[in-house]
Design a protein around this nucleic acid. Sequence first.
DNA 1: TGCACATTTGGCTAAACTTACAAATGTTCC
DNA 2: GGAACATTTGTAAGTTTAGCCAAATGTGCA
Lengths: 107, 107
Amino acid sequence: MNSKTQAKYEARAKIIKAMAHPTRLFIVDELAQRGERCVCELTEMIGADMSTVSRHLAVLKEAGIIADDKRGAQVYYQLRVRCVLNFFECVESVMQNNSRERAKVLN
Amino acid sequence: MNSKTQAKYEARAKIIKAMAHPTRLFIVDELAQRGERCVCELTEMIGADMSTVSRHLAVLKEAGIIADDKRGAQVYYQLRVRCVLNFFECVESVMQNNSRERAKVLN
DNA sequence: TGCACATTTGGCTAAACTTACAAATGTTCC
DNA sequence: GGAACATTTGTAAGTTTAGCCAAATGTGCA
């Protein structure tokens, strides 16, 4: 694989990697449903340290998946790219395939 | 977040995590285009140690994204779920948004 | 059986990721 | 200015991941 091809896949992987964490998937899902949320609201829902949540948000923002909007002392985050929601559909179908496959093995 | 919700997002993250590596994205892309490939062919194309490639393939297989088919001494892998290819489209659009955004900042 | 080849697995190291606490920064309001 | 609050950042510890080499396993064939 040449270095240009390598770079192409690294750039893609970086964005997918930003989605590859349960807390970050929760955040994306939540923002998709509610439009926007501030860090304190998300922290409350997630139940982790606020600094941890802030770091997850930074990862998603750095990847370009969410955008931040400072309003007073709060920072509100919103989804910038809706198409990442398509990931969920596909993931669900993979999981369904998997459980079907496992059921088959047991017979 | 309760433990059921937590488990849901962890299961999803596991599958997305399997896609979150440049080499594994390359493999998925290659299998999508060529139908199937044995480990030795992929190893040749990727240019890493065969044991490394074998481990990447195991990750994708464990997630349910690819399937293996042993034929003689070789093991052929093929894509089991085409919808993961939708990831690429979305990732491209995120990258385009990002570069547009960066261009705007420079003006 | 024994050699050649394909693949996987064990073991190890280095790098990356995740998390929490504490401290720093920024904002509002008195 | 100073207290109260929201958020980010520095730091350190623990965990996971990626990579390679070497060894083990499995297959085909003389």
